[in-house]
Design a binder for these strands. Structure first.
Lengths: 202, 202
DNA sequence: CCAATATACTGAACATTGTTAATTATATTT
DNA sequence: AAATATAATTAACAATGTTCAGTATATTGG
């Protein structure tokens, strides 16, 4: 990487850090080109020398957030025994992360990063995020339970859909209306779904 | 209702019909005050004589759509035998309606109708929509299976969350990538969840 | 039926946003 | 140090939601 590339990367970094701070705080609503640039210490027009448009900037923030999210979750779940217990821990930490940063939830699941060319890969990345986090543990379950791959796949999907469904209702509609009740619901649902891995086949 | 109220209601109707047509067609993205008013045959400023702001107009459209949705679903499911079979039919019709009108899905589940005062009631209305559609059939299950109310409640919730999770991924991320695969996933998930009502308790 | 008043409608204008293009400032090279 | 290339900024445009003062229309009292 030559000097020019290093400097460019640095400049992108300034804008991205500004955007990321604002996203974590105020969220996407209050994010605009002028405020990002001001926070970064440049004119709004300068931003366009380093990003195609504001969507590209936001898209790059999503990637950073996903890494951060993964790190945080794995740290939280690392002492949990492999298998169903860790799947539950990871899933709850996953949900917890998005509750902590609602604007990142929006970015990941709600906002259509629309007309960006890289849309499709990003979509897949998000869609399979929880599955990737639990990959080892699902493998462990496959090895150590009587459930077959097909059944595991359905349960895995279900966990994914329920997690994001609960988040959607809680974040967007504030339903359940308080956090205590929400975590209760999360516990009940996640436990119920994962428990099915250990239930005897009927 | 006096003459003035009748006329006001009629005017609101013109704008709402215009907005509803555009919402069903192009969706929320292309909806703007000027185009709604043009479609309705008035100036954009006239709109503000009948609605506080464009959010109020859209909010009223949501209500109309919900009624329409309910009618369509109940018509589709009316010949299905009560209980689990009808729950499945209703849920699939419910999902189908939103696939047919993605912008209504957005309106219902994604868009925060935000700063509107009537937010809370609307949220509850949406949150409990599927449950209300299936109300009689869940009661039927409670009467005719060995499952208790508590267990039924969990399954009901799960169905709600999974439905909206699947929709979210399919609508917003186009995942699964084609409609055939999507309906397959819907069938598998819905059938699996509802089937649990009939499974013997372990 | 006409004038006075109330009501309804409209265009002009403003604020906020993303974006582009031309101009100015800065750095690099010869 | 001058010429050139690069970077950053200001000015401006377009789309959108919203407000307000003016104009057209309807209603009412004589």
């Amino acid at each position: 990487m030559n000097n020019k590339q290093i400097q460019e990367q640095r400049m992108r970094g300034y804008f991205m850090q500004a955007a990321k701070e604002m996203l974590k705080g105020e969220g996407l609503r209050s994010l605009n080109v002028r405020s990002i640039a001001q926070q970064a210490g440049y004119s709004f027009a300068t931003l366009y020398n380093y990003f195609k448009d504001v969507k590209e900037l936001v898209f790059l923030c999503v990637n950073d957030f996903q890494e951060e999210c993964e790190t945080e979750i794995m740290l939280k779940a690392k002492d949990t025994p492999a298998g169903t217990e860790r799947i539950k821990a990871i899933t709850k930490a996953y949900i917890g992360y998005f509750v902590q940063y609602p604007s990142i939830f929006n970015l990941f699941f709600i906002e259509r990063l629309g007309d960006i060319g890289q849309k499709q890969p990003t979509a897949a990345l998000i869609y399979t995020f929880l599955d990737r986090l639990c990959l080892h543990d699902w493998d462990y379950c496959l090895q150590n339970t009587e459930k077959e791959e097909k059944e595991i796949a359905i349960i895995k999907q279900e966990l994914n859909y329920v997690s994001c469904g609960m988040l959607l209702f809680y974040m967007n509609r504030i339903q359940p209306s308080d956090y205590t009740e929400f975590t209760e619901t999360v516990n009940i649902q996640v436990d119920a779904i994962v428990a099915r891995v250990l239930q005897p086949n009927s």
